[in-house]
Design a protein around this nucleic acid. Structure first.
Length: 276
DNA sequence: ATTATATCCTGATCGC
DNA sequence: TGCGATCAGGATATAA
């Protein structure tokens, strides 16, 4: 579900409310997520909340790093309040928070509120690290991401550029929605092999990536169906999608029909006239 | 060493 | 109304 802009939104919002709070208790309902002892984190101080690739990173005192990957339908929803609320009483949901009690997989009770991890499809993962580990990838929102670096990364790759953009070992953070959007903005056909891109095209992919991701972050991400931020609110970037989920609709640039193809069992949307 | 495919899950939607 | 097939912001283990 969430790609870089969505995870960035959640991490930023949680950072505001959770920084320096104490994790009083936690309950993990889904056994798939019980990959560490609750005792390890109980009563630990949360120092900060960050994004690492597509993961939300909760940094606790004593060098404890909880990595939460939301995968397709994971949500982290914050409900402020001193009183402990659990998944049964959340049925009395209030305000705009759109929690699905059935899908609550874990609850983190802080002294100023509760953080719910909700995940319909149960693809989300927890991992507890005892040191700060940074992947060997480039984050496209950092200054490390330059045209030269991108050129090096795609060099010699025979993989189709759409599928290449989805890999997380080179460039981290792009998912199925933004991959289509980036290629449309770049004017590059999704079938093109990554290594065959010309200088100009790499430049376009580079600037389109930065533009799209930054704009999506500014708009709190894209809500296509499940995505909600930590306050249970939808994103707003879906209003600006040029091709994703717009099959048979008119291309916003040339009025041709947007088409949808399958690449590695994922749909890719593009305009055959605008993307050579 | 890369690259396709199958798999993990639940729920919504569509065609018959 | 019901039922099966298909699809969904992801990533990985396995096969080719």
């Amino acid at each position: 579900m969430p790609e870089l802009p969505e995870v960035e939104t959640i991490a930023r919002q949680l950072s505001l409310v959770l920084k320096k709070q104490k994790l009083v208790d936690l309950t993990i309902h889904d056994s798939k997520l019980r990959v560490f002892s609750s005792e390890t984190l109980r009563n630990k101080q949360l120092l900060q909340v960050k994004r690492s690739g597509k993961e939300v990173l909760l940094v606790f005192a004593d060098d404890l790093y909880l990595r939460i990957h939301l995968r397709m339908t994971g949500r982290l929803v914050w409900i402020a309040g001193r009183k402990r609320i659990d998944s049964s009483s959340i049925l009395l949901r209030k305000g705009s928070t759109d929690l699905r009690p059935k899908s609550i997989r874990a609850e983190f009770f802080f002294n100023n509120g509760t953080l719910f991890f909700e995940d319909v499809r149960r693809f989300g993962t927890f991992k507890l690290d005892f040191e700060s580990i940074q992947g060997n990838w480039i984050d496209p929102t950092t200054e490390q991401f330059t045209v030269e670096v991108l050129t090096k990364l795609v060099e010699n790759s025979k993989q189709q550029i759409k599928t290449w953009l989805l890999r997380q070992d080179k460039l981290v953070g792009i998912g199925n929605i933004y991959a289509s959007e980036i290629l449309f903005r770049s004017g590059v056909h999704p079938h093109r092999s990554a290594g065959s891109l010309k200088k100009e095209e790499i430049k376009n992919v580079h600037s389109a990536t930065k533009y799209i991701l930054h704009k999506a972050i500014k708009l709190n991400g894209t809500t296509f169906s499940d995505y909600r931020d930590s306050e249970g609110e939808t994103g707003a970037f879906q209003k600006f999608l040029a091709v994703y989920n717009r099959e048979d609709e008119k291309c916003r640039r040339c009025k041709n029909k947007v088409i949808c193809i399958r690449q590695g069992q994922r749909s890719t949307y593009f305009c055959a006239r605008c993307q050579e």
